[in-house]
């Protein structure tokens, strides 16, 4: 299984920290799934896309929902369609393989070339879901009993799994993964990320927006702290809206872009009213 070792180093609109790059490359080289955890909005989903982009591989997404079953990723046997077809006899219903559709994982196995497969938000599904996938991810093949077929991976896909830690993942599953936790970016990293998205951004605007952003994050008791993706949207809103840089910290324009919950919205406005974002204490800021 020696493959040419391409090395992931982030793309121009996705800034990956050094240890994240390391983890990605380790996972690729070992042929293990990479499990990514981190606060919402730290770019977990974007990571897989940028890996695919940089390594020029096809990109498949398997979005997990609370009702997703492990077998859905392998294949779906459309019995209802087959029953309907048998009523009218305009298809050859004796050939079951017509009614077998490969899921995303199955698709990534049969692909002619290596693909990047993102299993997004694995923790949304049932608690047993990851365990049901263990075998298939380990040996990279599965059987379809209905047609007596075995689907085997021609090229081991690069599997990226994201989790929001809504549920604990089973130990057996964790043992087989390479794990990486994306911490919330510090200000320096954040600046690089923003510049990667908006290279022409005015420096003053960026500074003010960052100041306001970290101030909002420092407010205790927010139900949902704004994250990187919200900051990016906000910066865009500020640019498009032509807001003067002085007003950003003073008034927090377009606050709805940063804050999504009613209760939080009021809390932030009240804090702003009481003390103003300017008068912040850097010590408090850091200790969120």
């Amino acid at each position: 299984m020696q493959q040419a070792q391409a090395v992931f180093s982030g793309t121009k609109d996705y800034i990956a920290s050094e240890d994240l790059q390391n983890s990605v490359n380790i996972a690729i080289a070992l042929g293990r799934p990479l499990l990514i955890k981190g606060e919402p909005g730290t770019g977990k989903t974007m990571l897989a896309r940028s890996i695919a982009e940089q390594m020029e591989k096809r990109f498949l997404i398997w979005n997990i929902k609370s009702t997703t079953k492990a077998r859905d990723g392998l294949y779906i046997y459309d019995t209802v369609q087959r029953l309907y077809d048998s009523q009218f006899g305009d298809h050859d219903v004796s050939d079951i393989s017509h009614y077998i559709k490969l899921g995303k994982l199955g698709e990534s196995f049969v692909s002619e070339e290596q693909v990047v497969l993102l299993i997004d938000e694995v923790d949304k599904a049932d608690i047993e879901f990851p365990n049901d996938l263990l075998w298939e991810l380990d040996i990279m093949s599965f059987d379809i009993p209905e047609t007596n077929e075995t689907v085997e991976a021609t090229h081991r896909p690069i599997v990226i799994i994201t989790s929001n830690a809504e549920k604990e993942l089973p130990d057996a599953f964790l043992r087989r993964c390479v794990f990486h936790y994306i911490p919330f970016p510090d200000e320096e990293m954040m600046e690089r990320i923003i510049y990667a998205h908006y290279p022409d951004l005015h420096k003053k605007l960026l500074e003010e927006a960052m100041k306001a952003f970290y101030w909002v994050r420092s407010i205790n008791g927010l139900q949902k702290k704004p994250s990187t993706s919200e900051l990016l949207d906000w910066v865009q809103a500020l640019t498009v809206g032509g807001i003067s840089t002085d007003a950003i910290v003073q008034e927090l324009p377009f606050l709805g872009v940063l804050i999504k919950k009613d209760r939080d919205f009021n809390a932030v406005l009240q804090r702003l009213h009481n003390q103003g974002a300017q008068r912040k204490n850097p010590g408090i800021l850091r200790s969120w």
Partner: peptide
């Protein structure tokens, strides 16, 4: 980084 990614499975 290698050992952390391979051995440690929770932040």
């Amino acid at each position: 980084y290698l050992a952390r990614a391979v051995l440690v499975k929770s932040e």
